[in-house]
C-alpha cells in the first residue's frame, strides 16, 4: 500500500522537531561537569567545520572555485567581515571564477 504523502510529511516534521527540542526537555540547568561542559563548548565549531569542508569544494561546478571560496571566506571572516559579507564574498568568488574555469 502506498503511504499517504501528507501523513508522511507530518511524521517527518514531528520526528525532526523532537530531535530539536529533546535537549530542552531534559536540561534544567547548565551542565557543571568540566568534561561535558568542554565537550559542548567545542561541539558547534567542530560540527560546522565538518559540514563546511570538503562539502564546499563539492558544492560548486568547479572544485577550484569552491576551494577559492573557502580560502576567501576564511580570510574575510578572519579579518572580521560580517556573516552577510562573508557569504556574499564566497558567492561572488565562485560566480566570477566559474566564468574562467
Amino acid at each position: 500500500m502506498q503511504n499517504n504523502a501528507y501523513v508522511y510529511i507530518l511524521v517527518m516534521a514531528l520526528a525532526t522537531w523532537f530531535m530539536r527540542v529533546a535537549a530542552s526537555l531534559i536540561m534544567k540547568r547548565p551542565i557543571r561537569n568540566t568534561f561535558l561542559q568542554s565537550f559542548l563548548y567545542y561541539v558547534p565549531y567542530v560540527t560546522l567545520a565538518v559540514m563546511t569542508f570538503p562539502a564546499i569544494v563539492e558544492a560548486t561546478q568547479s572544485p577550484v572555485a569552491g576551494a577559492a571560496a573557502l580560502i576567501i571566506g576564511i580570510l574575510a571572516a578572519w579579518f572580521g567581515a560580517s556573516l552577510f559579507k562573508v557569504a556574499v564574498l564566497c558567492c561572488a568568488t565562485v560566480f566570477i571564477l566559474e566564468f574562467f574555469l
Partner: peptide
C-alpha cells in the same frame, strides 16, 4: 552557474561563525 554560486552561501556563513 547561479545555483553553483549560491550553493556556497551557507558555507560562507559557517565560516563567519567558526573563524573569529
Amino acid at each position: 552557474r547561479i545555483v553553483s554560486a549560491l550553493s556556497v552561501a551557507l558555507f560562507g556563513m559557517f565560516l563567519a561563525v567558526i573563524i573569529p
